[in-house]
């Protein structure tokens, strides 16, 4: 028997079990077989079939967009694609010819 107050916000397991027993109808197997046999007779419209693929399509599109974003934002790609500036070439003392370039630019003044 239930000792819970009617104000409880939690389900009453005793009352719940008694209700399930009282309301459960017999022959579940026959019912399920009957419904399964009728699934084929209820054709789904083309819009419902397409809608069935909507979520899979959305996931696939999100994945593609994510991978494209990942490729564009990866550091190797960014540095590899940016042209090296003239300033960086002048400051690179190890680069052959950088001193000649500096002298030529200074001589023009």
């Amino acid at each position: 028997m239930s000792d819970l107050s009617p104000f409880d916000a939690m389900p009453d397991p005793v009352l719940g079990a008694a209700l399930r027993d009282a309301l459960t109808l017999p022959h579940d197997g026959a019912f399920v077989a009957r419904v399964r046999a009728r699934l084929g007779s209820r054709d789904r419209g083309w819009d419902d079939v397409l809608a069935g693929w909507f979520w899979q399509g959305l996931v696939a599109a999100s994945l593609v967009a994510f991978m494209a974003g990942w490729a564009a934002m990866s550091p190797g790609t960014v540095m590899g694609e940016l042209p090296e500036s003239v300033g960086a070439q002048l400051l690179d003392g190890a680069r052959p010819g950088s001193d000649l370039l500096l002298t030529a630019m200074a001589g023009n003044r």
Binding site: R20, L23, T24, L25, V35, L39, G52, W53
Partner: peptide, 29 residues
């Protein structure tokens, strides 16, 4: 449910078997 949404009658049939007792109780209520 995802397989059923893609058109699998078999998957939906499994969902029917899972939920038939509850659905019948609620309808009987």
């Amino acid at each position: 449910a995802a397989r059923a949404a893609s058109g699998s009658e078999e998957a939906f049939g499994e969902l029917v078997a899972l939920h038939a007792p509850m659905a019948r109780r609620v309808a009987y209520t």
